[in-house]
Write a protein that binds this DNA or RNA. Structure first.
Length: 595
RNA sequence: GCUCCGGUAGCUCAGUAGGAUAGAGCAACAGCCUUCUAAGCUGUGGGUCACAGGUUCGAAUCCUGUCCGGAGUACCA
């Protein structure tokens, strides 16, 4: 928030105390409820920068502000200085210039970066579940936020379309598919294929149980450990060998099934409003890493072990030793990522690269970045893993292989179905023509908001029965305020509007608070972008909407005492609407004119 | 074993450059629709901020230890 009186205070204090830390900017906070003031300056926080003690600095600040023309009242409590602004200054420095306000939600030109952001990265052996939804939602929201503050953002997806897990669903289809297709089964492609993955896993367990019963040495082994011993397990590995040797039947089946899955993903992405600038396929990129290592082998960071494996020593950064090529010369996971990282950099030459991947891979990315650094990649310090926590169910974590998952598409249907019911209930007499679209925007908005308002790094619990609410701290609550304002604007008789907005008529505390809240928007957005944290935006929007609802309840816009007052309140409403639209858009949530 | 992350109201979560009486929603209870959409507003109750020490004028926040939970620690991805 850029208040002239705070700017004045800053330069006054710098002048009085000589060279203060130039990084120091005094950022006012919202004055807590119960305290007298619009904003507050915490002198505990800034005292050190001015080489002064908090109390005397607060006194100094208070006496400066007391004489400032923008300040009508100052209250000093301990080292807090609570400021009540002159009404002209309050609106002048917040919402009177909306273009200026929104313009502050931007990083300096010198800090603008070309950012490559990779997210989603699904496997093509099963449909997406709630965990992927969190990833997709975070990814698209962070893309919006980062580009909104001025960065040049490129979104990429890396489809994991090869490997043993893909062969599992392929083998499942070969065994149980009976030449069916998504069309013949009347099923979405990714669900169709995922069904065979589950059937395969069931078969593994069945065969493993037989082994356990007949062979005492297998009795205490887990299903994972027994996998290579089962007939289907061995067949899946054989299928992988066939795939790698380019066996045409295997490749045909693989291509056919992947296409089914990808067309299913297209629908899911479309419904979420997720789009990528570029899609990479692991089947096409997984050999890059091997080439890079072989090329780099002369650099002493990689060395051949006695058993033939190629390794790198990361002991000095506490990451131990890491094999990058197996003794048979094939590459491991991190090797593939080395290759795709370099390839992505060649393709886009970004200043910075970001991966949105679950927190279980924190270690993997530390290793990846450390290897790239050791290889002497000059941009290796511009790589960031944005980890996010898992989404658990009240019963514990989701288990794809056992089918204990919250399916993305089903969840979308449930959310939008509930939104539809709620809409019909409200509009019983006149069913809106755009019912489907409304239900979609409200239901998806509720889901996305629920995921985004939680700090990304928090492991969260999703209770299907309790989470699907449209009241309280939810997306629809925010959307509702937008729609309420839209409704006011529809009913507004344009003839009552005055030519000029006289902001100083907005004297009510509820009006002042709304304006102050609006003023915080740029700082919030920059904070979210700087910390890759969507939750600050979501929680801010809730604060703003709560402030607006209190105003709305207490004061009428259309029936205000004078046309001048209506004009000013309409202007206030429009500002709120703009920020809500911008804020929600940055969370990839749409708004509605009526709901 | 080692490493990382977490433990805040009955539930789900905010709150870390140390700062004013620890916040919100849900759930519970009590009010508010002849007035711009009640997906709303107002109020009540509900807390040893896991535990124990330490640093500090001041700690949910920083340090140490303990307990509990999760993840990682592959020539898996």
């Amino acid at each position: 928030m850029n208040l002239a009186c705070i700017d004045g205070l800053t330069s006054h204090l710098i002048q009085a105390h000589g060279a203060a830390d130039l990084e120091t900017t005094i950022t006012p906070d919202l004055c807590p409820p119960g305290m007298c003031g619009d904003v507050t300056v915490n002198c505990f926080r800034i005292a050190k920068a001015f080489g002064s003690n908090p109390m005397s600095l607060a006194q100094e600040a208070a006496s400066y502000l007391d004489t400032h023309p923008d300040v009508s009242q100052v209250e000093q409590i301990k080292a807090f200085v609570n400021i009540t602004l002159e009404i002209s200054a309050l609106y002048r420095d917040t919402i009177a210039d909306m273009d200026g306000l929104l313009g502050k939600a931007s990083v300096p030109v010198s800090s603008k970066k070309r950012i490559l952001i990779e997210y989603s990265a699904p496997n093509t052996n099963k449909p997406q579940h709630l965990g992927h939804v969190r990833n997709n939602t975070l990814g698209s929201a962070l893309c919006s936020i980062l580009s909104s503050v001025g960065h040049d953002v490129t979104a990429v997806n890396l489809i994991n379309d090869r490997g043993i897990h893909i062969c599992k669903s392929m083998l499942g289809y070969q065994r149980f598919g009976d030449d069916s297709s998504p069309e013949s089964a009347g099923e979405k492609g990714d669900h169709f294929v995922g069904g065979f993955y589950v059937l395969f896993e069931k078969e593994v367990r069945r065969q493993a149980d037989v082994l356990k019963a007949s062979r005492p040495e297998f009795k205490d082994l887990s299903y994972d450990e027994l996998f290579p011993e089962t007939e289907v397990g061995q067949s899946a590995q054989e299928l992988l060998r066939l795939w790698e040797s380019n066996d045409s039947d295997t490749r045909d089946l693989w291509q056919k099934m992947n296409n089914w899955v990808l067309s299913g993903f297209d629908e899911t992405y479309k419904r979420m409003g997720v789009a990528f600038d570029r899609v990479y396929f692991e089947s096409a990129t997984y050999e890059f890493g091997k080439e890079v290592i072989n090329r780099t082998l002369k650099i002493p960071v990689f060395y051949r072990r006695d058993d033939g494996a190629t390794e790198i020593d990361l002991d000095d950064v506490n990451l131990g030793k890491k094999v990058v090529l197996r003794s048979d010369g094939t590459s491991v996971y991190v090797t593939q990522d080395i290759g795709t990282t370099i390839r992505k950099h060649e393709d886009f030459a970004p200043d910075s690269m970001i991966w949105i991947v679950g927190d279980e891979q924190i270690h993997h990315f530390k290793v990846l970045f450390a290897i790239l650094a050791k290889m002497g990649i000059p941009w290796s310090d511009q790589l960031h893993h944005i980890p996010y926590g898992m989404v658990n169910l009240p019963s514990g974590r989701m288990k794809s292989r056992e089918g204990i998952v919250v399916d993305a598409d089903e969840l979308f249907d449930e959310m939008t179905g509930l939104a539809r019911e709620a809409t019909l209930e409200r509009w019983a007499d006149e069913v809106p023509a755009d019912l489907d679209e409304r239900s979609e925007i409200i239901g998806m908005g509720a889901l996305k908001f629920m995921l985004l308002k939680v700090n990304p790094k928090t492991t969260m619990t999703f209770d299907p029965n309790a989470s699907m609410k449209f009241e309280g701290d939810t997306g629809p609550y925010v959307q509702y305020v937008y729609a309420r304002i839209a409704s006011i604007l529809r009913k507004l008789d344009a003839n009552v509007l005055q030519v000029d907005t006289d902001w100083s008529l907005l004297k009510e505390p509820e009006e002042r608070l709304v304006a102050i809240q609006c003023g915080f928007y740029p700082a919030i957005l920059l904070n979210a972008a700087g910390n890759f944290d969507t939750s600050v935006v979501a929680n801010y929007l809730l604060d703003l909407t709560k402030a607006f609802n209190r105003f709305y309840k207490k004061h009428s816009v259309l029936s205000a005492a004078t046309n001048e007052l209506t004009t000013a309140r309409v202007a206030l409403c429009r500002c709120v609407q703009t920020i809500l639209r911008e804020g929600l858009r940055n969370l990839s949530i749409q708004t509605l004119e009526s709901m």
